[in-house]
Every structure is written in C-alpha cells, then in structure tokens.
C-alpha cells in the first residue's frame, strides 16, 4: 500500500494502465512530465501490496514500467510451462541455499583441496 502522498499524487496525476495477475496497479502520468532516455515522457509507477519490495514486479510489466516497452506483455503471452514469478526470495523461508550452506547442514561436497586431519586414537 502506498503512503498518503503517493495516493494523492496518483489520484490527481495518474491514469490506471492496468493490473497484473496479482492485482498490483500500474499507473502512468496523464501528461508527459518526466525527461528520461533523451525525451520527455509519461512517468510510470506501480503501487505494491503491503510489505512487498521492488523485485515482485512480474516480467510482463517490468519492461513497460522501465520504459523498455510501450505496452505490457499480454497475459495471453504466458506459456503453460512458465511457473508464476515469485519475486526475490532472499531472506524468506523459501530462500535458496546452495549445497554445503550452513542452512543446509553445512556439509558441502568433497573437493580435491580437502585434507584429512589426524586425530588421536582412543
């Protein structure tokens, strides 16, 4: 959820372009109010759900939001083998830990640099 200033700004300046699969709202300024990429263009922004970070923008909207594309990719372009985009999982329980990470027991695969330490018998 956006803060109060953003909500007022959106109300007066913004035009709702669309919503992504998760319901985030994407806005564009009604007038060409920003310079970027060598030209004056319409500012584009997104209002996230509460507690989200910037990595949750799905690939369909990411290009449009960063002025790469003129329009977002349609939902129909999505292939059946594409899994839903989850955003950055770092710091969550779903975070990826490589083999040998302390979060996975800390037992990495053997390497040629390993040595076997001597321990006294008994």
């Amino acid at each position: 959820m956006a803060n109060l200033g953003t909500r007022i700004y959106t109300r007066f300046k913004g035009r709702l372009v669309g919503k992504d699969a998760d319901g985030r709202c994407y806005y564009e300024a009604r007038t060409a109010n920003r310079t970027g990429g060598g030209l004056t263009r319409h500012e584009r922004w997104v209002i996230y759900h509460k507690g989200e970070d910037a990595s949750v923008v799905p690939p369909e909207w990411w290009g449009w939001l960063h002025h790469v594309d003129e329009a977002p990719l349609p939902e129909s372009a999505r292939q059946p083998w594409q899994i839903p985009y989850p955003g950055n999982r770092t710091g969550t329980v779903d975070a990826y830990h490589p083999p040998g990470s302390d979060y996975r027991g800390g037992r990495r695969a053997a390497s040629t640099s390993d040595y076997e330490a001597w321990v006294p018998e008994g």
């Binding site: 390993d114 040595y115 076997e116 330490a117 001597w118 006294p120 008994g122």
Partner: peptide, 18 residues
Amino acid sequence: GLKHRRLDRPWVRVHGKL
C-alpha cells in the same frame, strides 16, 4: 600423502588423553 593424517591443530595430553 600431504592430504592425509595431517596435524592441523595443537594437542596437549591431559590426564593421559590428547
């Protein structure tokens, strides 16, 4: 042999055990 049975920490015998 440089990778086997290496001494990699100091040991001291206390009450008969290292």
